[in-house]
Write a protein that binds this DNA or RNA. Structure first.
Lengths: 149, 149
DNA sequence: TATTGTTATACTCTATAACTATA
DNA sequence: TATAGTTATAGAGTATAACAATA
């Protein structure tokens, strides 16, 4: 005797399943994408969260990246080795070091984003009408800034 | 002078950005979900890809999990420690060891899936009409089996 | 001899604890 | 004394290479 799984009736869960299935493939591509730029996934994630305009302190990065300060040191070292970021002095407090994207870092970052946000073929196969319907509905629940990281 | 990013015009890319933003939060929850079952993310991933019905050889798992055979040994050791999977002899070839989910493994696996496929609150906030529209469109491009892993 | 899986070992990434320099 | 960041060190997870058993 086999225990059958309880069927999903909740429409939100149904949509969630469909979305997860759609995204799963891309998620697995991330490490390869990072590697294609000579970075490990952690450093790539860090690169994407660095703001080209606003240098941040090491400690605030530890908060943003949800990792230990010593790991921030290590990750920023990796980015510096690739010439993608640089440590700078803080004007008011000589204990603080800020991290800023270099010109090259900003360029690579936007290249990576372009690759990440390239829609997969199956999505591209939808009609313009369907795509616009999707966008309209999704915009109701996705804050504008989160859709343009 | 700052170089402005090229605006995204392609409607498929726009939708893709929205979808990615929506899924990002959940993706970050995965390690915590794994930890709540006493597993590391790798072992959890492995558990989810083990078929309750079909035992698989170690080498085929290395292919499926995209990792080295020695790592399969390590991961299956972890699952066995928790009583979630077990090695079995292959009837025809004594070199081969197959890996099968235990009864407990199948149970935990479906619990994990239930947690993973629970829609987040913002999705739940959509109207039934919107959810049905989403499901209808997404089903055009998501193969039925991929939406029910 | 070739293949399957394990063991021995090394490397990568992350964390904790001790340390340096500023405040 | 407290805080920011680094360095020293340890641990988890993954890979490569050598090995034992079987084909």
């Amino acid at each position: 005797m086999t225990i059958e799984p309880v069927p999903v009736h909740d429409p939100a869960d149904t949509v969630w399943r469909l979305l997860t299935a759609l995204l799963m493939v891309r998620k697995e591509e991330f490490p390869a994408l990072a590697a294609s730029f000579g970075l490990n996934p952690g450093a790539m994630h860090a690169l994407l969260q660095l703001d080209p305009e606003e240098p941040q302190s090491m400690s605030s990065l530890a908060g943003a990246w949800k990792c230990d300060a010593s790991n921030v040191t290590w990750l920023v070292d990796r980015l510096e080795e690739h010439g993608l970021a640089e440590r700078r002095a803080h004007p008011g407090d000589r204990r603080i070091r800020t991290v800023a994207l270099t010109r090259k870092g900003a360029k690579i970052r936007s290249q990576v984003e372009a690759r990440m946000y390239e829609a997969p073929d199956n999505l591209r196969a939808l009609s313009l009408r369907d795509l616009e319907t999707l966008a309209k509905i999704l915009r109701k629940i996705v804050p504008e800034d989160r859709s343009r990281p």
